[in-house]
Design a protein around this nucleic acid. Structure first.
Length: 203
DNA sequence: TACTAGATCGGCT
DNA sequence: GCCGATCTAGTAG
């Protein structure tokens, strides 16, 4: 699939300010090649976490066994377990040692939708999910995309999980709000999503 | 529709 | 021990 490879985001994309990368990630396509099948989706909602100054970031307070991938060079995947049961996936940004990353909160499914339903059914009792409920949350996205801790530290320049370029979202169509589910640094408006997109986790 | 509890692991004070 | 960048199912209104 040459077209896909040519469209892959280069490392330079990730080596910028975490807020800039977060906004630019909106509309980009995330692809997971899983068992020779293609799972792909458009990113519609993200949150930025900045190591140095952001108390809500896992990387705040320094490097540890769990968060060390966040301190790696931009262009890696940081996956962690939350509440003992769910996974969340982040894109590491900036230079090594910064500890910056962007949480992928919601995506709009494109390819492999049937597979996503199957992946999600494993953990949900009801199987009358709507397409809209498939990936409208960080843990739902990981479940649908079959992303787990084995992908922690994976390079996005490889051929397993990677991102494709797409035309940027106009500034006026990007909503910036406070982040969800955190208790520290609540005032920072570092959650970004595409206005009017039905796949965001909430308005 | 709105709130609440339960699930369940690992990192950190 | 405690609590978390969550989600689902259940109950009440």
């Amino acid at each position: 699939m040459p077209a896909i490879v040519e469209n892959k985001l280069s490392t330079d994309f990730y080596l910028r300010n975490v807020i800039t990368v977060a906004k630019d990630l909106l509309s980009k396509i995330i692809v997971h090649i899983h068992n020779n099948k293609v799972l792909s989706a458009k990113i519609v909602e993200v949150e930025a976490y900045q190591g140095e100054t952001d108390e809500a970031s896992h990387s705040y307070g320094g490097i540890s066994e769990r968060n060390k991938v966040m301190f790696d060079t931009g262009g890696k995947l940081y996956v962690y377990l939350i509440y003992g049961i769910y996974f969340c996936a982040n894109v590491v940004t900036g230079n090594a040692g910064q500890g910056d990353a962007v949480l992928i909160r919601a995506v709009e499914p494109i390819d492999g939708i049937d597979l996503m339903f199957n992946n999600r059914k494993r953990k949900t009792r009801k199987n009358n999910l709507s397409k809209q409920q498939l990936t409208n949350g960080p843990a739902k996205f990981c479940e649908a995309f079959n992303i787990g801790k084995e992908h922690n530290g994976l390079s996005l320049n490889g051929n397993k999980i990677f991102l494709l370029n797409n035309k940027p979202v106009e500034g006026k169509k990007i909503a910036a709000t406070t982040r969800i589910g955190i208790s520290k640094s609540k005032e920072l408006k570092w959650r970004f999503y595409i206005k009017d997109n039905i796949f965001v986790s909430r308005k």
